[in-house]
Simulated scan of single mutants.
Amino acid sequence: MAETIRIVNSLGDYLRARRALVSPADVGLPTTGRRRVPGLRREEVAELVGLSTDYYVRLEQGRADRPSDEVLDALGRALGLGSAERAHLYDLARPRRRVVAAPAGPGRGEALRPALRQVVETFPNSPAMIMNDRNDVLAWNHLAAALIADFPQLPARERNMARRIFLDPEAQLIHPDWDEAARTTVGILRMAAGRRPHDPELVRLVGELSLGSETFRKLWAGHHVHEKTHGPKRFRHPVVGEVALSYETFQVPGAAHHLLVVYTAAPGSPAEEALNFLGSFTPSSTP
């Protein structure tokens, strides 16, 4: 029950977490005397944004009605927020008044067009999969199953990358950059929670991960947010060893919370050779 409360994050929670990360020197303010709190004080944020201290305090306490775009933009600048963090700020400041249908989880009636599964299979030389913003893997190709996880053999609820990152004992072997993977995974879930704080599947997932992983609890308390777009990614396979790839994500048309993720290897690289080797096996004979 406690984690159900904590997933419903207020604008004040986020503002307090973010101002704690900004030092006066970062924004050109003098650093004088001993400070009782890390980062900026409330009155310093108010001054930077051009608000009265009383109004800013009411924002953090949840007593201010729908701050304007100008106020939110100024808060974003003062706190040094990136694009994903600004989007999260708006989600928290402008909660949707209607219930937004969340993407169902695997095994719970997820509506994924058959043609989309075929699209994933059209990447014969690159691992590819479709995920929702709860990190459920909804579709995958042979190379993704051979390199990342044996998705066809997993129970539906275990086809979730957040569970695999935090609850699989072998996760740190599979993901050489586990610390970064853990941080970005939590950030993706935070973004989803800002959009749909009452999504029952997301609430259950966050509760399960909080009970099962101290690292998850600490990262969740940090209020970091992340939008999956592109970047490097390394995997470690028991047969081919470490595979260094790049990934790109593509929004699935007609499904706001679904992303197609494609991993590619540099031409002529050891990673390309490793993928070619894994691709030479049939799904039933993967090494």
Rank of each mutant, 00 (worst) to 15 (best):
E3G: 06
I7L: 14
V8A: 15
N9Y: 08
N9G: 09
R16P: 07
A20F: 12
V27W: 01
L29P: 11
T32P: 01
T32K: 12
G33N: 06
G33I: 05
G39R: 15
E43F: 13
E44A: 09
V45S: 11
A46Q: 02
E47K: 09
E47S: 15
G50L: 05
G50Y: 11
Y55C: 09
R58E: 13
L59C: 11
R63S: 12
A64C: 09
A64E: 15
S68L: 12
D69N: 10
D73I: 06
A74F: 08
G76W: 08
G76K: 05
R77D: 15
G80Y: 05
S83W: 01
R86V: 11
H88D: 05
D91T: 10
L92E: 01
L92N: 01
L92S: 01
A93C: 13
R94M: 06
R96N: 14
R97W: 04
A101C: 08
A102N: 09
A102T: 08
P106N: 15
G107M: 07
R108N: 11
E110H: 13
E110C: 08
E110S: 15
L112I: 14
R113T: 02
R117Y: 04
V119H: 02
V119N: 04
F123T: 07
P124R: 12
P127R: 01
A128T: 06
M131G: 03
N132A: 08
R134G: 13
V137D: 05
A145I: 04
A145D: 04
A146S: 12
I148C: 10
I148F: 07
F151N: 03
A156V: 02
R157N: 03
R157L: 14
R159G: 02
M161I: 10
R164Y: 00
R164C: 05
I165M: 15
F166M: 02
L167N: 00
P169A: 03
P169N: 11
A171K: 01
L173E: 13
H175M: 04
H175C: 00
H175Y: 15
E180I: 10
A182I: 00
R183K: 09
T184Y: 14
T185W: 04
L189N: 04
R196T: 14
P197E: 15
L202A: 05
L202M: 13
L209F: 01
L209V: 03
G212V: 02
R217Y: 04
R217L: 00
K218H: 13
G222A: 15
H224Y: 08
H224Q: 12
E227F: 06
H230P: 03
R234T: 07
F235I: 02
R236P: 00
H237Q: 00
P238K: 00
G241R: 00
G241A: 05
G241W: 00
A244F: 00
Y247W: 04
F250H: 08
Q251Y: 03
G254H: 07
L259M: 07
V262C: 10
A271S: 14
A271F: 03
E272H: 08
L275H: 00
F277S: 06
F277R: 13
S280E: 03
T282S: 13
S285W: 07
